[in-house]
Design a protein around this nucleic acid. Structure first.
Lengths: 206, 206
DNA sequence: TGATCGAATGACCGCTCGTCCAGTGGCCTG
DNA sequence: CAGGCCACTGGACGAGCGGTCATTCGATCA
């Protein structure tokens, strides 16, 4: 049973993290100030420091929280399917769906890919956020490796392949978020899946 | 004939822009200060303001200058080849070669993809830098469209395809720059070209 | 109901950084 | 060689940031 204080505490943390994502989505990582996040959350600046040590921890925790949700979805997508084609389709569906439901998170996601700031800031980012990407890429690379071992696909460097596909799909998501009216989610998933599997060249009918 | 003043002026501009790229490559966009750029260029802080209105113009001009070189290379790569496969191969070679020769530019290139900062800053970026990406993507999309018209490749949304491929290849370049010892440039070009054309699925030998 | 508590506040501090400008010294000209 | 010109300098300045802490005040309890 959660005590009343715990519930209030969790609620505050959640409110502040939501505000953080919205402000970063609006202004970008560098221009998102503590003051504006506080205003957005409807609390005073000092209050944020009761829940997070400093700006860096705030951003990091906010990122972790949303990223974990995404990774869980992708894990499930991988586990629930057998054939590579189905896995890819499920992963892409999960990714598109997640970012369409969490638009504000996308900007933060993009910002933390590339390390910014001073050496010290970079060190902490490398320790916390970048591994999440690397793990994710390696996880996808492992899926591809399995498919290669089973002879489902051609043998190439799986890590490079994973990188290419993940960044390519991120570009499609970014485009979808920019478009006033995107095509059906399923259409983009189909487009990407078939491109990944068969490329663009016309197939000689076997 | 250039006057002596013009030569000196150009030299200064070039020196400062080179320094700007180096510092941004080292520290990242947000942490690159005018003071450090000035030190790197071997001039005083104030001198920079004799050649550039403000920090924003400095960054923008630096970006434009390098970006134009890249675009020229890609234009040449497209014009010099007939078949789509050759065009893609040439474009990828040009891109990899350019960034391997201009490592410092890559960080700036990545930073300006996503708008950062205040609304005013964003407006200027949208007007100057983002169109360069969009144009580049549209240019590549046009190449793909032509190949579709000629029946060389399957008909899909060319703009989405262009986005996917451009971002995917950017990820490979980023990985190459991170690696202490990258594989041969030609290997990565071959990998990407064959992936783009044929995907990963084993081809049924026709 | 009065005493107590601690979560929330926001004025404040120290600092960094972009920008400005009064001063300087090397070069060109008459 | 004298004198003016102007490219260059670098300290001064103020805006605006993250982070602190003395103060406030509604909830809680004896």
């Amino acid at each position: 049973m959660k005590s009343k204080e715990e519930v209030v505490h969790e609620f505050r943390v959640q409110t502040i993290q939501d505000a953080t994502m919205r402000v970063i989505a609006r202004k970008g990582m560098a221009a998102a100030t503590i003051q504006e996040i506080a205003d957005e959350a409807g609390v005073a600046k000092g209050t944020i420091y009761l829940y997070f040590r400093d700006r860096e921890e705030l951003v990091e925790k906010t990122f972790e929280c949303a990223m974990t949700q995404l990774l869980d979805r992708i894990d499930a997508a991988i586990a629930a399917n057998e054939k590579l084609e189905d896995k890819i389709r499920a992963i892409m569906t999960a990714k598109l769906g997640f970012f369409s439901a969490n638009r504000e998170f996308f900007r933060l996601y993009l910002s933390l890919r590339m390390p910014e700031g001073t050496a010290a800031t970079q060190r902490r980012q490398r320790q916390h956020c970048q591994p999440r990407y690397r793990t994710r890429t390696e996880q996808f690379a492992a899926v591809l490796q399995q498919a290669m071992d089973r002879g489902e696909i051609r043998a190439v460097d799986p890590y490079r392949l994973a990188l290419f596909i993940m960044e390519g799909s991120t570009a499609i998501i970014l485009e979808r978020l920019k478009e006033p009216a995107s095509p059906d989610e399923q259409d983009d998933v189909d487009f990407m899946t078939s491109f990944i599997l068969d490329g663009v060249r016309k197939r000689s009918r076997s």
